[in-house]
Write a protein that binds this DNA or RNA. Structure first.
Lengths: 155, 155
DNA sequence: GTCAATTAGTTACATATGAAACTAATAGTA
DNA sequence: TACTATTAGTTTCATATGTAACTAATTGAC
């Protein structure tokens, strides 16, 4: 049996999970480098900032739900950003386990600088697609996300 | 100035780089769990197996190019798979720095088991899309990959 | 041939990450 | 009230990862 007689053809580079992973990593790496260079923030820290900026008083657990980060990553990002002086934590008055998070004035300054940059970046990326294509991509990604969702027992 | 008076609207969950990252991680995590459970292989090891199976005699550097893995990751995956008895390394006769990699019979057995499973999995995933949608997704991802490619100086 | 520059691949080190154990607070139940 | 179960968040520990330094072989210039 010759080497080329493969069970059935699998070309890694045409393999959807692989392509998605490479594309996502390429984009994430570039964005991470930008945020780090400009603001000294990791992607995780930036995600936390994005949701706290949008929803002041949010808790760590809620941040995790909104950002698809696990609680350890959230905890570490929060700790680092408090250290940096960008975040402030208050203990909830109604539930002593729960923390409520707010941007400090310095944090809000960074937030207001970084949001337009993030949006401009996304624009440069998705600007490679027409409006229709962007919507179609959204739709297709939604279908894939649904199919791959951990709730579904496909595999 | 009210909290909601954001510079401009940024909703993380609608942010393309974020959505891509979450989708890709969801899929990768599930596949990694499957390969690990069934064959004790990491995603990186599986990628190496996929290209060596397809191109016996390939070198580590070439594997890196084909799989978008960095050379350290390739080196480690190869070492582990030699240890497992799935890969064999010969030094190139024309270039003593270069190694040539081959699946052992045991490696080929695993390869022949895993390829159809990988393809079936992809099928379950991309089966959520019609043929036309799959092609469209390919096309859109290609445009994004092009726009995000490290050669381009967008950012 | 000899020596600097390049290339293939590995190793060492420092950091990132995730699972599981842990602490502290709350909720539920008797 | 007291006692157990649950939840929020942190810490610990073991592993994964990337950068940079390294070794070994080859190439190219002289």
């Amino acid at each position: 049996m010759p080497d080329s007689d493969n069970v059935s053809l699998l070309r890694l580079r045409e393999f959807l999970p692989y392509r998605l992973s490479v594309l996502s990593n390429t984009i994430s790496t570039r964005i991470a480098a930008l945020y780090d260079r400009e603001f000294g923030l990791s992607i995780w820290q930036w995600r936390v900032m994005a949701v706290v900026g949008d929803r002041p008083g949010i808790s760590a657990t809620e941040i995790g739900q909104l950002t698809a980060m696990d609680k350890v990553a959230v905890s570490r990002a929060i700790a680092a950003m408090i250290q940096m002086g960008y975040l402030e934590r208050k203990t909830s008055e109604t539930d002593g386990r729960r923390s409520q998070l707010f941007l400090t004035p310095a944090g809000r300054d960074v937030y207001e600088l970084i949001v337009p940059i993030a949006l401009a970046e996304e624009q440069k990326l998705s600007g490679a697609l027409t409006e229709d294509e962007q919507q179609e991509l959204e739709r297709l990604m939604g279908k894939l996300a649904d199919a791959a969702s951990p709730d579904r027992e496909l595999w």
